[in-house]
Nucleic acid binder design. Structure first.
Lengths: 153, 153
DNA sequence: CCGTAGAATGAGAACGAATCTCAGTTGGGG
DNA sequence: CCCCAACTGAGATTCGTTCTCATTCTACGG
């Protein structure tokens, strides 16, 4: 099975931290702040952007918190471009989604495919993987385009 | 139109360099070597890997050649993970394809979707883009899984 | 409610991929 | 064949990210 884990669990907030705790992590101020900041984003976010929103979290702490949360499976490091990493809540927490990337301004936003659309994609993906001896465990779809704001200046 | 530009143009070799020349680039030894090395790969390749294969091309020259070829539209910088960029021939030259990423050994290989499968994906992708005010210009599908070699040790 | 073990923090140093600089070299149009 | 702008090469530099280590805090047992 490749796609869509479960539907958007009402308010992630709680469950994210609970998962982190279950993974044996302490729920420190920095980690709560990082999770809260990620929840407030509409798409994968750079460490620099997070650092700006979390002015009181030192950069070394921010990166360590992100690394630990990635290890715990509640945050994902995705969509690196131009040598800059972006972070988002993991699909296990935020639900499966695709990314719309504006080739002009670089913004990335999440889009949630309809269940039937994603079933179709998952089926295709699994067939391709199988044809090459792979066992598929997931897929990522990045849609490149131009956003409304950049198209009409 | 989102996907699959044209079918695998017989032997890329020539056409890649011609495109580069058409874009106003000089066909220097370093650039020929980089293109040849990329053609020999089965998937996106790191600069370090290329440097190893092209021992006589200094690292600064390698990166510059790659940057220039990316600008010319014949090479694509894709699939960065852990802060390391990977390069491959652009889809305009190599044809549209998806990526199979082994989560165990990290290898990335290209897979060419069947025309009908990719039409389906392109349609879904376009609908999603349109729903969010984007004009889609392309899509990338990364399939995460475990390769045959890693599954049976 | 308090003490404590050990996990987590914070400031800065260190690391490494990628880019830049600049003097010397070379491709290819004229 | 000549010339000059494009390109190269070695090394310095940048900057995102990770590491180090003394200090602080969390969460658990008493």
């Amino acid at each position: 099975m490749t796609g869509r884990p479960t539907v958007p669990t009402a308010e992630p907030g709680e469950s994210v931290l609970r998962r982190a705790a279950d993974a044996g992590l302490r729920l420190t101020r920095a980690r709560r702040a990082v999770v809260a900041a990620l929840e407030a984003c509409t798409g994968p976010t750079t460490a620099a952007d997070l650092a700006e929103r979390l002015a009181d979290v030192p950069i070394s702490s921010l990166y360590r918190s992100l690394a630990v949360l990635v290890d715990a499976g509640v945050v994902a490091r995705v969509h690196e471009t131009e040598g800059i990493a972006r972070f988002e809540l993991a699909e296990a927490v935020a639900g499966h989604h695709h990314h719309l990337v504006c080739r002009s301004c670089g913004t990335v936003i999440d889009v949630r495919p309809t269940p039937s659309a994603d079933d179709t994609v998952a089926g295709i993906v699994e067939a391709e993987a199988a044809r090459h001896g792979f066992t598929a465990t997931g897929h990522h779809v990045d849609i490149e385009g131009v956003c409304a704001a950049c198209r009409t200046p």
